[in-house]
Design a protein around this nucleic acid. Structure first.
Lengths: 110, 110
DNA sequence: CATATTGATCGTAAAGTTACGATTAATATT
DNA sequence: AATATTAATCGTAACTTTACGATCAATATG
């Protein structure tokens, strides 16, 4: 009858979900936008640009860092954040491959 | 506190976050993979392919539907799901535009 | 008509997210 | 040395997500 339910999720599925989750909050998209525009940014500058408290921004930065999308460099008392280009490209490729899969529906339904 | 006001972020930021959120769980990526492969799928078939209960799958389908990525057609007692091509393309474009923004870091830090 | 199948929805528990202020550790400045 | 600045972390409250079983309405089949 039915197919097996044995599958846990594939590497691709977990990977796409991880990157998507990192970008699943507008504040984190806004942070990425800032880093893409400025190339590098001190944490305090990001706090100034967003309508969020320092601790909340720090939390969002942590999430992006854990997904691998950004990295931080200590610069004295400040921390300079920037995009992890290698990982950003990897995320881009992973998501692109998912979106590329579509070929136009020949009309089974919908 | 849970959510954030949608008005505080740009349309692009909210839009990207919305699509990313839809894909932020491996089960939902798996569902999209299935629909991309088969072009159309009865809900029950999706349940058979995933290690989740019927109600949980239905919940994930609802999330994808609310993000606009899929649509469902009633076929007798069953419901046939497929990708909303227009919205899928929109999501693709939105995410692509974000990822395209990167030009290589000239070395401010990191 | 009676019963089975299908899939949405309800109720609910556990876990996770998001937000903030307070605190802490590190570095800078006076 | 004393104080200010910076950003991570802690503690906590409120909300959301994820999961499941139970139930319901709609269709299908005997």
């Amino acid at each position: 009858m039915g197919a097996s339910k044995t599958t846990t999720y594939s590497i691709q599925e977990n990977s796409v979900a991880k990157y998507a989750k990192a970008l699943s909050h507008p504040a984190r998209v806004a942070i990425m936008n800032l880093l893409l525009k400025k190339q590098a940014c001190v944490c305090g500058d990001i706090v100034d640009e967003l309508p969020l408290s320092q601790s909340t921004v720090s939390q969002h930065l942590k999430a992006l860092k854990e997904a691998g999308l950004i990295k931080g460099d200590i610069e004295g008392a400040s921390v300079c954040y920037c995009i992890d280009e290698k990982e950003w490209t990897k995320a881009k490729t992973q998501l692109n491959q998912l979106f590329e899969k579509l070929y136009i529906n020949t009309g089974k339904c919908c």
